[in-house]
């Protein structure tokens, strides 16, 4: 049976894909940076922070981890305007990604913090550092180093998840593929290309995180 794949038909649409890649990268980099920052903050609250805030963070984490990203995105983009909070699709997408990644990163980073030997806290205290200073200067880096691989995997998952942002007209890779297949009806080819682009981005992202890891954690092994 002749299945006639025709990738040539996509040649005219290269710029569309290029733009899509740019948007997906933007979503991932901005969402990733802010999301991990949120995760660190929440992990700090859960392990060291004010006791009053802990249930709030727990509720947030549980809510996010037990609902689909798609629903979170739709709730933010379609739902919030009806209580007077509107934003553009790019802002909504990034906000959704930050909130989503923040919850997962919180749990991952918390595990890293909890694996810190008690002696590290005591050493910090014995050097007259405050609890926050100890966290910031002694505990955080080795904790991040411990969980860097898990955090990297989560970031890749979040990038893959960002594909649904096309549903609120964010013009990412998936949006490009949707657009192209609606024009030339070469759906299969368009999604194959999109899939390969995601695959390549995932490889780059892992590589980037590895480089960032070696920059952040030069040589030293994490204390156990």
């Amino acid at each position: 049976m002749a299945v006639g794949l025709d990738f040539g038909a996509l040649a005219d649409y290269v710029p569309v894909f290029v733009k899509g890649v740019g948007v997906t990268v933007e979503l991932t980099v901005v969402g990733g940076t802010l999301g991990i920052s949120l995760g660190v903050t929440c992990a700090w609250v859960k392990t060291q922070g004010p006791k009053l805030l802990r249930p709030v963070v727990s509720l947030y984490v549980e809510l996010i981890r037990n609902t689909p990203f798609l629903i979170q995105l739709f709730f933010i983009f379609f739902g919030l305007p009806s209580i007077g909070v509107s934003m553009g699709e790019m802002e909504a997408a990034i906000l959704a990604m930050v909130i989503n990644l923040g919850a997962y990163a919180c749990e991952i980073i918390r595990a890293g913090i909890e694996a810190t030997p008690r002696g590290q806290f005591e050493a910090g205290a014995s050097l007259a550092m405050s609890r926050f200073q100890t966290f910031r200067h002694v505990v955080l880096r080795p904790a991040l180093q411990r969980i860097w691989p898990a955090l990297t995997s989560q970031l890749v998952i979040v990038m893959f998840g960002s594909a649904v942002c096309s549903q609120i007209a964010v013009e990412d890779i998936t949006f490009a593929a949707n657009f192209i297949q609606s024009r030339n009806f070469r759906a299969f080819e368009a999604y194959i290309v999109a899939t390969l682009l995601y695959l390549a981005l995932a490889i780059l992202l892992r590589q980037g995180m590895r480089l960032l890891g070696t920059a952040l954690f030069p040589r030293r092994r994490a204390a156990r």
Binding site: V3, G161, A163, T174, Q181, A187, Y191, Y198, A202
Partner: peptide
């Protein structure tokens, strides 16, 4: 594991119709 689930869904949906 290395590609988005959404792409897999699209490929199954459109890919199978491609082979008739």
């Amino acid at each position: 594991q290395g590609t988005p689930l959404l792409m897999q869904l699209f490929l199954f949906f459109f890919g199978l119709s491609l082979v008739g």
